[in-house]
Computed example of a mutant assay.
Amino acid sequence: MLRVLVLEDDGDLRSILCELLSLSGADVCVSAGSLEELRRKGPEALGCGLALLDINLGAGVPSGLDAYRWLQDNAFPGKTVFLTGHARSHPLVREALELESVQVLSKPIGSGALLALVGDASDGTGTRQS
């Protein structure tokens, strides 16, 4: 059973992503709009095999990179994919691109890309190796 974590500050986009993930084969979508909400979901979020994290969650609040660090500090076993609407020159995007074992995709993300991510995570090729 594939569980996917979606961290996205735009509630409508978060809902659409969860619907598309379900249509792509994900069994459960755990969604959060902020790092604080993600932390409250704790074990439910940490039990996911794939995490889709919006890099920029708004001005003056923790970013998707902060969420990534929280996941790593709590032994998240799955694959991490950052989503961004920013150019590669944006400081948060540059930082994400320097990380190992993550992927950075531009918004809007197509249904084919979601299908591939779910397929990879479902067959185990998306799981991070230690």
Rank of each mutant, 00 (worst) to 15 (best):
Y68I: 04
S89N: 14
V104K: 05
L105H: 07
S111Q: 10
V93Q: 08
N74Y: 04
P108Y: 02
Y68W: 13
K79N: 12
Q72K: 15
L115E: 14
A121K: 02
L65E: 09
L117Q: 01
L114H: 02
V61H: 14
D120H: 06
G60Y: 06
L114P: 00
E95L: 14
S106V: 03
D66I: 04
P108R: 07
G112P: 03
H90A: 06
A67K: 08
S101N: 12
L99A: 12
G60N: 15
S106N: 08
K79P: 00
G60M: 15
A121H: 00
R88M: 11
R94S: 15
H86K: 12
K79C: 03
L65K: 05
L115T: 04
V104H: 05
P91R: 13
G85E: 13
D73N: 02
F82S: 10
P91S: 14
E98N: 15
R69A: 12
H90M: 08
A87V: 06
V118I: 15
H86G: 09
V102I: 07
A116L: 12
V102R: 12
T80Y: 00
F82I: 12
S101G: 09
E98A: 15
D66W: 04
R69F: 00
E95M: 10
P77N: 10
K79F: 01
G78D: 10
P62N: 11
V102P: 10
D73Y: 01
L83E: 09
L97A: 09
V104C: 11
L92E: 11
A87N: 14
R94L: 15
A113H: 03
P77V: 01
G119Y: 01
D120N: 13
L105S: 05
L83G: 00
P77W: 01
S122N: 07
P108L: 02
V104Y: 05
N74G: 04
S89M: 04
D123S: 12
D120A: 13
S111N: 08
L92K: 07
G64H: 07
G60K: 14
R69Y: 01
P77D: 11
R94N: 12
Q103T: 10
W70N: 13
L114T: 02
L97C: 10
A59T: 08
K107S: 05
S111H: 13
L114F: 00
K107G: 03
D123R: 13
W70Q: 11
T84R: 05
S106D: 10
G85S: 15
A113K: 05
Y68L: 08
Q103R: 14
F82E: 11
P62K: 08
G110P: 03
Y68H: 14
D73M: 01
P108M: 07
V118G: 03
A87S: 15
Q72M: 12
P77C: 04
A67H: 12
E100L: 05
P77K: 12
K79E: 14
V61K: 14
L92C: 11
G110K: 07
N74L: 07
Q103Y: 03
R88W: 06
S63P: 09
G85K: 09
V118A: 03
W70E: 15
G112V: 04
Y68V: 03
V81S: 09
D66S: 10
H90P: 11
P91V: 04
G64D: 10
A116M: 09
V93W: 01
A96P: 10
N74T: 06
F76W: 04
S89F: 00
L105Y: 04
N74R: 14
L65N: 04
